[in-house]
Nucleic acid binder design. Structure first.
Length: 858
RNA sequence: GCCGGGAUGGCGGAACUGGCAGACGCAGCGGACUCAAAAUCCGCCGAGGUUCACCCCUCGUGGGGGUUCAACUCCCCCUCCCGGCACCA
């Protein structure tokens, strides 16, 4: 033992170097920056197969956080691996540079959003380069630059031309803190602003620009089926978000004409089969017809006002789902077109104007909400459908009890005129068809998805290229006049209204049509517009007469792998998908979907809580890099857990990875040029430790390679490489004694370095050079494993009796099944366990175990 | 309420199609080296029992039931945690 330890403590060749990440990383970071061609993708004439790997572009907040580091470490490992696999890799990076925080920061620091943003970009880019992420910076995209946002404007004009951008007055979410409109999606928990999580959102009416995303609702839903390499979770979230419902529109005529609006109420229902159970019609408080009813009825008017307020309040607090049901009878009646029954019309606070038609037929017996409402106001509850197994209609006394939807296909209608005795599925079909035939209804599909409101009353965004003319109305800015440049001299510190409205030379322009006086649109675009198509721009980022080159896009798209946080699973990814479909219909691109494979990584937390300044648990990448180096920091972010899970950051874990890299570094440098080459000549490679080193090496390559292609469990890839290094250290004594063949040692060293390359590129590059290699690691082929060597020579079988472990036997790897079984049965302990009992069967699991099942009461 | 995901040693996590639970790392303990410390290297490390020791035995993957020769893994019920949606007609 002490002899062995001596060997360890004083290795024979003192060539090893101390692992100094700062020195190594600064050296290589400088070299890589000096040679931009290293990470440059080839054009689409390349003979290599293309691979487009993309991480979601960051908002330039000023400093990289651990979530970024994790995101980019995953993407970078993949990009480096694919480069080594010989692919033509596109791995770009850019900046989501418009947006509110820049304005807020500029006000606070008395600077300009542009200066603040560009300064941040400079700092963050430096951090990325320091960490060694391999981006093709020649394709960098910065969305706040006119070269980029002019194409937002161009796309807007196309949307407008196709009728997909339109203006409408609408109730909007207004954040008093931001003094701007928020998308529905930007209102988060309890009706608060997504940026100011403590600020309650208010409601206002404004004239807004909308993009008709609903035009593509059906395709956005249908094509989710194609995205089978997306996380199921994301597909489900999108499916629910789009929220398709099949049903029917049915007209209920008014008992007597009400006013200037229509003489009928159209309801949307998914359960037309229950229409004989409808005992009232319910309108949303904002339904247009309500105004007709309230015009002459002051009391009713005030009641409805109260319902509107209740809804607004519930929307603000976010518990619209838990609002106490409340309604008011209008005094009017509607006629059920199927049985001519007169039923009362109510206005209720649980009916939403922006879903369906804003009006429903209320069927208390078969809808829980309607039931609750009917109970409260003592409306009739009429059962019209029962499961087939209930043979008879309920006695009058028990009528009110079954409040069940009865959706089973074998449910039967009762009390439903000519439809009685039909199953509910038949009834839906027949009643819908009849309604259509008789002219009072039709099949219809509605979506939860709403059109995308893109107007923002803010400065730091893309100006909407529209001019309002007194004579000509809404006039789009001609393409030739793009870009509409965002002016610099804007006082953004004043609150209220659009900041751009305070710049006369921006606002007052001649009408492009008639030359008369015009006023520019002063709203800017939602920044989700920027991020909806930025990844197309990377394919040809400097193109100045078109947003993109179709042939180049055809080559690179779809994106092979997109990586980012799950928080973008709905908004960004639905808007992006919409944008792609729109671009396809313009003929600009030919792909239906932008992203082939999506990966959503888990959050980075610390001590069980999200990292935040207020909790004081923020871990700064800079600090980690300064302490342990970039390689250790990024490798730890991959090693701590699998990429899809939440990562609980532990500084001590980074230190562990640092120790591992030190070990790897010492091993390779120690033996690199240590004169071992001739000491063991002719010893052969087929036996003992030589063999076990080779085996471990090839097993490791196999495991890492498979992780890249399958599960992406880079934590197990890294631990596999750690095991390899442990095996090499265990062989130190043999190496010192010259019992390891030089070619085996050399192969192990080289391939170890190659295995490290995707995860710890700096130390890998340093060692690679130390081994006398000139070629860049990125261009060096990823090692193949030899399947024969990756297998064990000898396999240890577990021996079980009745499922209980009884021992082990080691057999040659190629032993046939009967021989292994025989060996197992002959085992001493097994024979004792059997002890004369009858063997019922012997189960053989190749490579794993033999289980002897005894015939006995267990 | 609905939809998704999760719960494994002191800690982060492995275990891929049901087949030896706890790989790898952290922390801890012991040893070597050192005047000493750091660093490094080696060993131990789920709980309980048994043993001088090697071995061996029992229990053990949030809780309860089930299927199976065999269950962290599959099925049913329940608890808790995380994410999304929420009067969607």
């Amino acid at each position: 033992m002490s002899e062995k330890t001596n060997v360890m403590a004083n290795p024979p060749e003192q060539r090893e170097l101390r692992y100094d990440p700062q020195r190594i990383e600064q050296k290589w970071s400088a070299r890589w920056q000096a040679d931009p061609s290293l990470y440059a993708a080839e054009g689409h004439a390349s003979t290599r197969k293309k691979y487009y790997v993309l991480e979601m572009l960051p908002y330039p907040s000023g400093v990289l956080h651990m979530g970024h580091v994790r995101n980019y470490s995953i993407g970078d490992a993949l990009a480096r691996y694919m480069w080594m696999r010989g692919y033509n890799v596109l791995h770009p990076m850019g900046w989501d540079a418009f947006g509110l925080p820049a304005e807020n920061a500029a006000i606070k620091n008395k600077t300009h959003p542009r200066l603040w943003t560009l300064g941040n970009i400079g700092r963050m880019k430096e951090q990325m380069q320091r960490i060694g992420f391999a981006y093709d910076w020649s394709r960098e995209v910065t969305t706040c630059q006119p070269e980029y946002y002019r194409w937002n404007q161009w796309f807007f004009l196309k949307l407008y031309e196709k009728g997909l951008a339109y203006r409408k007055k609408s109730r909007v979410n207004w954040c008093p803190e931001c003094a701007t409109v928020l998308a529905n999606e930007q209102v988060v928990n309890d009706g608060c602003c997504w940026r100011h999580e403590e600020t309650k959102v208010e409601q206002r009416e404004l004239e807004q620009w909308f993009v008709r995303t609903t035009e593509y609702a059906e395709e956005l839903l249908r094509d989710l089926d194609k995205l089978d390499s997306w996380p199921e979770k994301v597909r489900i979230m999108q499916r629910n978000w789009i929220g398709r419902s099949e049903g029917a529109l049915v007209d209920f005529a008014l008992d007597q004409p009400a006013g200037p609006t229509a003489a009928k109420i159209t309801v949307f229902t998914t359960r037309i089969d229950t229409i004989f159970g409808a005992t009232s019609v319910q309108l949303a408080p904002e339904h247009p017809m309500v105004a007709d009813f309230t015009a002459a009825d002051h009391h009713l008017h005030r009641e409805v006002e109260e319902l509107v307020r209740e809804q607004a309040r519930a929307r603000e607090t976010g518990d619209i789902g838990a609002i106490e049901k409340h309604g008011v009878f209008t005094g009017r009646y509607a006629v059920n077109p199927f049985n001519q029954e007169k039923i009362p019309i109510w206005v209720a606070n649980y009916i939403l104007m922006d879903y369906g038609t804003g009006a429903i037929m209320s069927v208390p017996a078969h809808d829980e909400r309607d039931y609750e409402f009917a109970k409260k106001y003592d409306l009739e509850i009429r059962v019209v459908i029962l499961p087939r197994r209930v043979a008879e209609p309920p006695a009058p006394g028990e009528r009110e009890e079954p409040v069940l939807p009865y959706t089973e296909p074998d449910s039967l209608l009762i009390n439903s005129g000519e439809y009685t005795e039909l199953s509910n599925h038949e009834a839906i079909k027949k009643m819908t068809a009849d309604a259509e035939k008789r002219g009072f209804g039709k099949a219809a599909v509605t979506y939860r998805l709403k059109d995308w409101g893109i107007s923002r009353q803010r400065y730091w965004g893309t100006p909407i290229p529209i001019i309002y003319c007194e004579k000509c109305g809404v006039v789009p800015v001609p393409e030739s006049q793009l870009p509409v440049i965002l002016p610099d001299n804007v006082d953004i510190s004043l609150q209220g209204g659009s900041p751009l409205g305070r710049v006369p030379e921006f606002v007052n322009v001649p009408c492009p049509k008639c030359g008369g006086p015009g006023r520019r649109e002063t709203d800017t675009m939602d920044t989700f517009v920027d991020s909806s198509w930025y990844f197309y721009r990377y394919t040809n980022a400097r193109l100045n007469d078109r947003p993109l080159d179709t042939a180049t896009v055809d080559y690179w798209f779809p994106i092979d792998q997109y990586i980012g946080g799950v928080e973008h699973a709905i908004l960004h990814l639905i808007y992006s998908r919409f944008w792609t479909k729109f671009m396809r219909d313009l003929g600009l691109v030919h792909n239906d979907e932008p992203v082939l494979r999506l990966f959503t990584q888990g959050m980075v937390i610390k001590s069980g809580a999200k990292m935040s300044k207020s909790k004081g648990n923020v871990v700064s990448p800079d600090e980690m890099v300064a302490r342990y180096g970039a390689d250790s920091t990024r490798m730890y972010s991959l090693f701590a857990t699998s990429p899809d899970r939440e990562l609980d950051w532990q500084d001590a874990g980074v230190e562990g990875v640092y120790r591992f890299l030190s070990r790897a570094y010492r091993f390779v440098t120690r033996h690199a040029l240590s004169g071992q080459a001739d000491s063991a000549a002719g010893k052969g490679t087929s036996s003992g430790r030589n063999r076990s080193i080779q085996r471990k090496l090839h097993q490791t390559i196999k495991r890492v390679t498979e992780d890249f292609h399958g599960r992406w469990h880079f934590n197990t890839s890294v631990s596999a490489v750690m095991e390899l290094v442990n095996e090499l250290y265990a062989a130190e004594e043999d190496i010192a004694a010259g019992r390891i063949a030089p070619e085996v040692l050399a192969e192990a060293q080289r391939k170890l370095v190659l295995l490290l390359a995707p995860f710890a590129p700096f130390v890998a590059a340093e060692l690679w050079e130390g081994l006398g290699e000139k070629q860049s690691l990125l261009r060096y082929p990823w090692p193949e494993y030899d399947p024969a060597l990756a297998k064990e020579d000898e396999i240890t079988y577990a021996i079980q009796v009745n499922g209980k472990l009884r021992g082990h036997i080691a057999v040659a790897a190629d032993s046939p099944e009967p021989a292994v079984k025989e060996r197992a049965l002959a085992d001493e302990k097994v024979r004792v366990a059997i002890a004369g009992k009858e063997v019922e069967k012997v189960i053989f699991v190749p490579g794993k175990l033999v289980n002897i099942v005894l015939h006995e009461p267990r």
